[in-house]
Design a protein around this nucleic acid. Sequence first.
DNA 1: GACCGCATCATACGTAGGTATGATCGCGGC
DNA 2: GCCGCGATCATACCTACGTATGATGCGGTC
Lengths: 223, 223
Amino acid sequence: MTRPNQAQPPAQPSSATVIIVDDDAGIRASLDSLFRSVGLETRLFGSPAELLGGSLPDGPGCIVLDVRLPGVSGLDLQSQLVRQGISYPIIFMTGHGDIPMSVRAMKAGAVDFLSKPFRDQDMLDAVTAALERDAQHRAEAATKEDIRAQYETLTAREREVMGHVTAGLMNKQVAALIGLSEITVKIHRGNVMRKMGVRSLADLVRKAEALGVSQTRRSTDQT
Amino acid sequence: MTRPNQAQPPAQPSSATVIIVDDDAGIRASLDSLFRSVGLETRLFGSPAELLGGSLPDGPGCIVLDVRLPGVSGLDLQSQLVRQGISYPIIFMTGHGDIPMSVRAMKAGAVDFLSKPFRDQDMLDAVTAALERDAQHRAEAATKEDIRAQYETLTAREREVMGHVTAGLMNKQVAALIGLSEITVKIHRGNVMRKMGVRSLADLVRKAEALGVSQTRRSTDQT
DNA sequence: GACCGCATCATACGTAGGTATGATCGCGGC
DNA sequence: GCCGCGATCATACCTACGTATGATGCGGTC
């Protein structure tokens, strides 16, 4: 259960962090200086192991990753990060890449795939796109997390009632369905509205949709 | 205004159509026979012009496209088709492609990007993925189109009321907002429910969300 | 054992939603 | 000019929703 994100004002205008993973110290250094020159923070890693072992920032950012890395390949690292729920957008670099490799990376959700040598501007454009994608993703995740935090304050019964109510059932139908009196359903329903921080059923339905919780999915549709 | 799709049973188990665009007649022929061997229908074109001039099937399908084509390039054709609202998933082939080309194609939504020569199985796998994506897209589009068709039977006033109601306003609030009596709002609201084919407000809210119509987006949220 | 949160239900009251009946008005078409 | 449709509103009635008050019971915790 997290604190509501929506209330947090933009504390620091902290620019984003670019996580650089490359085994070539020269490349690391030049990317580092490139990104710092445009006001971005950086974190440098020489291998996937370092990255996975080290602490990642939890602010906005993206990863710039060489495909050919000691130990795990960049593509494997990509899927590994996805599995671990680390969702920084990834930009790949490669010195000796081929088309299948780039296609595989893009299919797996990479933002871009640049061949070395690349123009600084191309890298900056890619990073800009990646940070935009990250910001978008963070905004959605924050909203959803707020809703989930509210949902978690509900008791089991309240969640059950919420599911049926947002599916469009009347209080009496819910009552019959789960073997309660209507008045009890009304009480649970009232609690749900209060705990979920909504005043209208419409808003509750939207939050339920965001959570993916609606019991009866039968189509009342009959044109 | 289209007829509701949801009522249509799967009439024919008609397999999908693969649209092949390549200037090499030999390639066209061998792809044609490959796809037919697995029960797919085909349409052959030697150039983008032919494709844009000819009539496209409107059933499920996908496009297999050479990047290097007489006239327009495959990538240009891709964006052209997107602009025209033709949304068949695209698989690219190329004899002399490079990484930037493949990345650009994938960014623009291509399903796959195969280098010639490719293995038949790789092409078939790509087509399978493309047809899956197309089916998914079609299902969503059909559902949305049904809802839009219902929405278009609404009068201007009814749409206005629907927008406010699905935003969570009470009848009397809607009435005050647009200068009507509450009873009139109720009548419009009833008409909306009937015409939209829903019995509960919850279902109406979901359809409104699918359409993107909700007037007041103020946050009644106050945890 | 006392306390608390959760769940359950009854009664009661006030508000909101929904529909039927009937009526008026304006606009565009035949 | 008549008709149909949409829009408007009134009265009336019924159902649904929401909450307050009060009460009981159960399973944990301090």
